[in-house]
Design a protein around this nucleic acid. Structure first.
Lengths: 211, 211
DNA sequence: CTCCTTTCTGACTGGTTTGGTCAATGGAAT
DNA sequence: ATTCCATTGACCAAACCAGTCAGAAAGGAG
């Protein structure tokens, strides 16, 4: 039997934790580009043998392409959900988005680093088209979110696009901040996350919104 | 003569552009950790021969330690200047800080990536204490900036520390944003940078300040 | 238990890359 | 002409690389 074009064998693994451990090890190692990543490091991190990784994915490139597709699809479905949830009140939209993002980061801690690297190292990586799709998708979603946003809720004396950016940046930076402050998502930390996020969004509402 | 403990030979290079080209090549390659960086890539990027790099720095580790010290000192002196300039009006402080930061990024485009990586890969790198110093320094400066900040200028109904964070994050994210949008610091781009930054800070003033 | 299939291992390979060396070169100054 | 030192790049042994493969488990069927 030939090496399968898709990672069929990998998808047939019954235990989800094992799959995720491999995916996480790969995302972590591919964080800084395709070439610099070592399959030896990945298998050590994932706790599997070298042979098994190649049994699943055939080649290093096969693994990378699978990973790119997997994360792209994950993001795509999440973006859809985000757009569905998006209230015309953008603060509520960002609140929902943050909850979603936390769920993803909890399961795949390196997914955002990985995706970012795919956008940066476009030359270095195979299957650059997939990465390109992902990139255009991301900016498109932001544009759609802004289009769906009821900017008439904003104060009249400030530029709506810039205000939108400020809120988005605040949420994004808060995420990085809490991420660097905690080292696990215990219940206690999750409570803190929710509470502080709510507080920051409240400040935004009080300062950027009318009345 | 033995390999000098400090990079004396390097500091004796008369031409500053040549020195900066080497430093930039090294920062760029060390961006993703010490081990993953290749001296071959650095010399190719810097446009010098392999032998010369080792003539200057002795070892890869010597180069890395020099780089860490160099950037640490650069940041330190800039932080001092920042604290001196810091008006009690924090918006004015961040305005000055941004001008300073632009100057640094213009000269050393990868310096912030490099420093960040030194903080993240604490285990992987030699001379971890230097990186540690830098990290504590950075947070200390932020704390000092906040201490110097006249929070009575802020609206009374919002938490001053969180407001301070929001402004800091806004400036920081705007920097990333403009950095991804432009590919050189032409006069035109510099004008855009100044104009937009002023606009964002104006929004902050209007929304977060009293009256 | 035997037989068969599938999952999984890790020592191994040939080729590449690594940090670091060193004899030779070039050019400036005396 | 001689001295001096910055500069070169071919070269080295050691490490590391992606990928292989013979066979060990593990499981299911009879």
């Amino acid at each position: 039997m030939q090496t399968p074009p898709t990672a069929l064998k990998f998808l047939q693994i019954p235990e989800e934790p094992k799959r995720d451990k491999i995916l996480n090890a790969a995302m972590k190692e591919f964080r800084y580009g395709y070439k610099k990543a070592s399959t030896d490091t990945i298998v050590r991190d994932a706790g599997i043998s070298k042979g098994l990784l190649f049994f699943y994915f055939g080649t290093k490139q096969g693994l990378y392409e699978f990973l790119l597709n997997y994360t792209t699809n994950l993001m795509r479905s999440d973006y859809f959900e985000m757009l569905n949830l998006a209230h015309r009140d953008i603060l509520e939209g960002f609140w929902q988005m943050s909850l979603l993002k936390r769920d993803i980061c909890y399961r795949y801690p390196y997914i955002y680093d990985f995706i970012k690297s795919a956008n940066i190292h476009k030359d270095d990586i195979p299957a650059a088209e997939i990465a390109q799709n992902l990139a255009t998708q991301q900016t498109a979603v932001l544009a759609e979110l802004y289009a769906a946003c009821d900017t008439s809720l904003f104060r009249a004396d400030i530029d709506p696009q810039k205000t939108f950016n400020l809120i988005y940046w605040a949420v994004d930076a808060f995420f990085d901040d809490i991420d660097s402050r905690i080292d696990d998502w215990s219940n206690e930390n999750y409570e803190t996350f929710l509470k502080e996020l709510r507080e920051y969004l409240d400040i935004c509402k009080r300062c950027f919104y009318k009345d």
